[in-house]
Structure formats: structure tokens, C-alpha cells
Design a protein around this nucleic acid. Sequence first.
DNA 1: GCCAACGTTGGC
DNA 2: GCCAACGTTGGC
Length: 156
Amino acid sequence: MSLRFWLLKCEPEAYSIADLERDGKTGWEGVRNYQARNLIRDGMQVGDGVLFYASNARPSGVAGLARIVAPAYPDATAWAPGHAYADPGSTPASPVWYAIAVGFVERFADVVSLETLKATPGLEAMMVTRKGSRLSVQPVSPAEYAIVVRLGRGRR
DNA sequence: GCCAACGTTGGC
DNA sequence: GCCAACGTTGGC
């Protein structure tokens, strides 16, 4: 199966591309939206490319690249007592929520801002450029991924 | 901090 | 199953 591409959103205050660079890889946990869950559990494969998107940032935008480094696994934070993302509906025997392991690839010298994404031909259909798109896990086409990588590396 | 857009919840 | 109320997201 050929590689797929994704956009993952996170607020830098919670976890930034610099944190991922430091850690090398991280568990992308705490997703509590069914559409996003389905993409993680059913769509992501090891080796897939990830646009690391910083939301609620100045500016918001794609801060770098990552890669899926392990298959999806049940999100144990759902049944961790007192955890901020605890969900009594999800149990080890019957997990509802899934997480994915993401590895650092590259940090862009400059964030490719949402404003730039919106203004770049070829990205009109990209979910993140559409008004009101709140999904924290989004599919990205190979062509869109290539365009954003080019923007991030400063070549036009 | 504001608030529009969206997803979820729950009464009926 | 409808839909109003509510909570959250996220750009600005």
C-alpha cells in the first residue's frame, strides 16, 4: 500500500515541533473525536508523512515534518484514573480511543503560516485552509504535502 | 479575550 | 430522531 499523508494539529503550548525534535518521537494521545480516531486507527500506516501543524500560535501553521513510526494502539490515557483525557466509556478490554506514534523528521526554519497556505495555488481544497475546519487529524493529498514541504524548505 | 463554527448531549 | 443548549476549537 502506498504512503499516505496527514496533518496533525497541536497547540505549541501543549507540544511543539521543538519538543518533538528533542524527544525524537512521541505518542500522539488524547484524541477524543470519532472522525479523528477513525483516521488514526484505520488510515495511518507506518512510514506515512505528517505535517506538524501548530494551532493557536503566532502565526498558526505548519512548523515541520514528522512520520508515523508505529501502528495505532489503544490510548491508555482514556482509563488512567484522574487523567485529563479520561473517558469511562473506554476500557482496556474494549478501547474506544486510539493513539499513534509519531517521529521527528524536520523542523522548518520558518512556520508555513495558515495565511500562506490559504494563498498558495494547489492548496484550495486542503482541509486546514477551509473555514471552520476543527478536525485535529486531517488527510492530506500527496500533491498538497509536496507543496507544503517545498514552502517549508523555502523553495518556490 | 472574543466569538463563529462545529461536535456532542440530552430532553422530549 | 429532532434540535436547543452546551462545551470546545482555534483564528484573530
